[in-house]
């Protein structure tokens, strides 16, 4: 009886250990090597020092302020990208003509890195918020629109035949078959878009900003505060992971019919 109760818990604990093990081991080795003097604290400060700096920056309110500003920028750019990317993606995905009309421009603009847009963005929108939001929008927009179009185009031909046989009206077919079927691809696009949005916010803040995580990193670099640089880097990583996790959770709630390969 007791083993029946504890076994699932043990398994959960085991999975948690597997999940965090590698990260904890790297931190431990890093700390030990620093202690033994193998690592130059200016080039790579020990985890304990980073934790301490994190706490100080957090307490002083500097870090929360920078985080808040960066998150707002990411959410602004990402939201615009999601709305336009989904909307245009659906319109283009459902129409061959729209695809032909927009295909070339999308294919050519897509490979241009958002960072390359920074000079123009500053000229057009100044060094304020608008230029940063624009850069983030550009980064997040293409993964979302491309995946939306692809997802729609991958509609199973077998369902198309069923719909033809049953004379299903187009709008019903789109809402009951095409869009739900495209949802996994769309969610992938949204997750990649959000990741690229974070890459872009830091890039944008490195160049022209007086706030944000990217600015924090750049400012610390000039003062050779490698511990602050690392605090900024790790903060971005953790926030990115949390946001990705939230979208994955949303995906799980929406897509209940999929029995995906889980790795084992």
């Amino acid at each position: 009886m007791a083993s029946e109760l504890t076994n699932p818990q043990l398994q959960k604990l085991n999975h948690l250990a597997q999940y965090t093990g590698l990260s904890l081991a790297i931190i431990a080795v890093w700390q030990v090597l620093s202690h033994l003097g193998y690592l130059n604290p200016v080039l790579l400060p020990p985890p304990s020092r980073i934790a301490q700096t994190f706490w100080e920056l957090f307490k002083s309110g500097d870090l929360p302020r920078h985080i808040g500003i960066s998150i707002i920028r990411v959410l602004e750019g990402f939201t615009i990208a999601a709305v336009l990317g989904l909307g245009l993606g659906i319109v283009i995905g459902l129409s061959r003509t729209m695809d032909r009309l927009t295909g070339l421009i999308i294919q050519v603009v897509k490979p241009i890195p958002p960072i390359a847009w920074i000079p123009l963005a500053i000229l057009w929108f100044g060094i304020g918020e608008k230029s940063k939001v624009y850069i983030i929008f550009l980064g997040a927009f293409f993964p979302i629109i491309i995946n939306t179009i692809d997802g729609i185009r991958q509609t199973d031909h077998k369902f198309v035949e069923v719909a033809r046989l049953l004379a299903v009206p187009r709008f019903k077919f789109v809402f009951q078959v095409v869009l739900p079927g495209a949802l996994p691809a769309i969610m992938t696009g949204v997750r990649v878009g959000l990741m690229v949005a974070w890459i872009c916010v830091v890039a944008a803040e490195l160049i022209a900003a007086s706030s944000g995580i990217g600015y924090l990193i750049m400012d610390a670099r000039e003062l050779s505060q490698s511990d602050v640089v690392l605090v900024g880097m790790i903060t971005i990583g953790v926030i990115g992971k949390v946001m990705d996790g939230l979208i994955k959770l949303l995906e799980k709630r929406i897509i209940t019919w999929k029995i995906a390969f889980s790795g084992n």
């Binding site: 077998k158 369902f159 035949e161 069923v162 046989l165 009951q176 078959v177 739900p180 079927g181 897509i255 209940t256 019919w257 999929k258």
Partner: peptide, 12 residues
């Protein structure tokens, strides 16, 4: 009406 070898039910 038509029935195929695979049921072709819409999974969602």
């Amino acid at each position: 009406g038509m029935v195929f070898q695979e049921h072709r039910l819409i999974p969602w």
